[in-house]
């Protein structure tokens, strides 16, 4: 069985309908366990005090915001190369989720930054590239809304997505590229020495799983809605033509 079979809307609807209840249940469990563990049962950091608890929402939301754009990039490339409608609709469906996660990351970062850095905002490479990524999300959604023909909209937004990917990568690796600014390095790493302390690590990992699950669940629901909306448009167009 090939992966491309699921580019068929009927097969996608059948598979996603079967997966959705499990995705939603797993997401709810991971979010509740991760956030409750992090908020209620972890100690304060010796330097950051209780603000360290913001890590359980800031890091997962930032990760989802960046990786959502990369998922949109893959879906856009699939659309441009293979012309599968479901992939274009999945990219469209993902954008509002990514934009919301970017706002959460920016807002919680500002709230965390104020007591720790003494400022809500700095034109630091990572923060700036993240803000630009948010503007790209807005532009991407505006472009989908502005173009009437869905195929043309999919093509234009795919190109925009490819351009915006530069900022998705920059917001992830800005610290490596410029090695300056207020923002600290990655909280999680494959190198155990660079990770946060174990007491914060496990609840953070579960919270990340919860946010990723939330992204997948919402993406499935929204893509199913887009597939239905496309069929609705097709039927209405057929009726108009008589």
């Amino acid at each position: 069985m090939s992966l491309w079979e699921y580019a068929n809307p009927r097969k996608f609807m059948a598979l996603s309908g079967a997966v959705l209840p499990f995705a939603a249940a797993g997401t709810a469990i991971a979010l509740v366990v991760g956030l409750a563990w992090g908020f209620f049962f972890t100690p304060e950091d010796y330097r950051q005090g209780s603000t360290v608890k913001i890590i359980y929402i800031h890091v997962p939301s930032a990760m989802v915001a960046i990786n959502c754009w990369l998922m949109m990039l893959v879906a856009s490339l699939v659309w441009l190369i293979r012309r599968h409608h479901v992939s274009a609709l999945a990219a469209k469906a993902a954008a509002p989720i990514g934009a919301t996660m970017t706002v959460i990351a920016l807002a919680t970062g500002a709230i965390w930054g104020q007591p720790m850095w003494g400022t809500w905002w700095a034109w630091d490479p990572r923060l700036t590239s993240f803000l630009v990524l948010f503007l790209f999300y807005l532009g991407y959604m505006a472009l989908w809304a502005a173009v009437d023909n869905p195929d043309t909209a999919a093509e234009l937004t795919s190109v925009l997505c490819i351009v915006g990917s530069v900022f998705a990568v920059l917001s992830r690796y800005a610290l490596v590229f410029w090695n300056q600014g207020l923002h600290q390095g990655a909280s999680l790493s494959l190198d155990k020495e660079e990770n946060v302390a174990d007491v914060f690590y496990w609840p953070l990992l579960i919270a990340i799983a919860g946010f990723v699950g939330l992204f997948v669940t919402l993406l499935l629901v929204r893509t199913r809605t887009e597939v239905r909306a496309r069929r609705l448009q097709a039927l209405m167009a057929r009726e108009r033509m008589g």
Binding site: F39, S50, T51, K53, I57, A107, T108, I111, P115
Partner: peptide, 15 residues
């Protein structure tokens, strides 16, 4: 949450 209660609660609230 000590002196950072407002910051932590508002971050969770917004999210």
């Amino acid at each position: 949450l000590g002196k950072y209660a407002t910051e932590v609660l508002s971050a969770y609230g917004v999210t």
